[in-house]
Amino acid sequence: MAAVAAPAWALRFQGVGNASATELGTPMATIERAGAPWLTIDCGSEGLSAYLDHYGEPPRAIFVTHVHLDHVGGFERLFVSEYFDPARRGRMPLYVPAPVVPLLHRRVADYPNVLAEGGANFWDAFRLVPVGEAFWHDGQRLEVFPARHHWPDTAFGLRLRGSLAYTGDTRPIPEQLRRHADAGELVAHDCGLHGNPSHTGIDDLEREYPPELLSRCVLYHYGSRADGEALAARGFRVARPGEAFTLDAPVAPDAGG
């Protein structure tokens, strides 16, 4: 029987739960190209373990949405794997929205003597790339947009035009998705069974977004397997740990964009 070819583009979830749903893994996902990891979104501790189990290698490039520990708790371990591998040290692109850079530094890098014997800085292990409204990775242009999570200018989403809009942790952001999910993208959206001041609930989702956009949503960052089943019973696609969703191929940005 012939092997089934991997889709040209896909989004694979390493973890889909909220900070308390340890059985679902910390929220982390990877855009794949031809079956290989292309760009990973966030690096939680449990998510990193799932990534290594699946791909057998550290991430090749990472975009950071925000610095809550369920999204960046894997960086200390990742520092070790990157720094002590001469072939990888300082090479992995780490794309971080510019306002998030100092927050990430304080969260994961601001510790005296990252190695007990000295002689190393935390950022020596990575190629840190602060980004604004857009950046380029491996020949593709990606857009960055603000989310509504916890505090202004601390959390951001990611768009690969025509392919994916990934919200990161957020309340509903209809004004952003009207602009950054207007080309048929799959929309990976934070959504639990119940909302709160930092996260979207299913009632919020249904109230704030039109049916056409809801039909393109895949929900993650929910509270339990039972909550995931309840969300699916409302007619939504719900991401499970390790599940991959086929993406359309990216399209070129608008002229001047």
Rank of each mutant, 00 (worst) to 15 (best):
L164N: 00
A10D: 07
Y220E: 02
P197L: 11
N121W: 10
G256K: 05
P241L: 03
G139R: 05
R171G: 05
L69Y: 11
F63Q: 02
D190S: 03
Y51M: 06
Y83A: 01
G90H: 01
V72D: 05
F156M: 08
R171M: 13
T170Y: 02
R207Q: 12
V16F: 09
T65R: 02
F122M: 03
D169Y: 00
S20L: 15
V108Y: 01
F135R: 07
T30E: 05
D153V: 01
C43I: 07
R141A: 06
E185T: 02
P102D: 08
F122S: 04
A10C: 12
D124K: 09
E133G: 14
A109L: 02
I41Q: 02
S224P: 10
C43R: 08
E143Q: 10
R234H: 07
R225W: 14
G228Y: 12
D124N: 12
P211S: 12
A125W: 03
P7M: 01
L48N: 05
V187K: 01
P241N: 04
G184V: 09
H149M: 01
L52K: 01
G47C: 07
P241T: 02
M92A: 07
P7N: 02
D85W: 12
V101R: 02
T30L: 01
G90Y: 04
A249H: 04
R60F: 00
T30V: 11
N18A: 11
E82Q: 14
L186A: 08
G223R: 11
V251N: 05
G242K: 04
D70T: 15
G168L: 09
V16M: 10
A239Y: 10
G256A: 07
Y111E: 14
L247D: 08
R216Q: 04
P37T: 10
R91H: 13
V129C: 15
E212S: 13
D227A: 15
L213G: 06
G235S: 11
L94F: 06
R178K: 14
D204I: 08
H221D: 13
A181H: 00
P250F: 03
L94G: 03
F122A: 04
I173P: 03
E208A: 15
V16E: 06
P130F: 09
E143W: 08
V96W: 03
G47T: 10
L78A: 03
D42T: 07
A181Y: 02
L205I: 06
L142R: 00
R148N: 13
V96R: 04
E143P: 00
A19I: 11
V16R: 11
H199I: 01
N113R: 15
S49E: 13
